[in-house]
């Protein structure tokens, strides 16, 4: 049991890799930056609009980056985020953000949708999107 707990702790630690994540939006989005709290509210379904009142379309990932993103954004493991969404979606309140397979797909979708907001590894950011927040 103790070995098992140690192993679990090690898995937890090794997950905090060195990647820096960038929260990105469309070039035409006129907001300067978003706070961690504002990005949380959008990805946790507490709001469906940007602070400027415009409709937003959060894009999640189905890649391993997802666990890292929520750990950095909410300081909670992804299992807790999934349990949170189970409560919200199975009581008919809201649906979780749509998931795309990788950074490339997110980048492409954010470029094409004015309201989109997604996250990718910082090294994949180019000048076709705007960075709203960096998560270390």
């Amino acid at each position: 049991m103790r070995n098992l707990l140690l192993l679990l702790l090690l898995t937890m630690l090794s997950r905090s890799t060195l990647a820096e994540l960038a929260v990105i939006t469309h070039m035409k989005n006129n907001i300067d930056t978003l706070s961690t709290q504002q990005v949380q509210d959008i990805f946790m379904g507490r709001t469906r609009v940007f602070p400027n009142g415009k409709f937003c379309l959060p894009i999640d990932q189905s890649s391993p980056l997802r666990a890292e993103f929520y750990q950095k954004l909410t300081a909670r493991p992804v299992e807790q985020i999934n349990a949170y969404w189970a409560r919200i979606m199975f009581s008919g309140q809201a649906s979780p953000p749509q998931q795309l397979p990788d950074d490339h797909a997110v980048l492409q979708t954010v470029r094409e949708n004015e309201g989109a907001i997604g996250y990718i590894d910082k090294i994949h950011v180019d000048n076709s999107v705007r960075v709203m927040l960096l998560l270390k």
């Binding site: 999934n82 349990a83 189970a86 409560r87 008919g92």
Partner: peptide, 10 residues
């Protein structure tokens, strides 16, 4: 009471 069937959520 809205989701007591959803064991995964608690």
């Amino acid at each position: 009471s809205e989701y007591r069937n959803v064991g995964y959520a608690y």
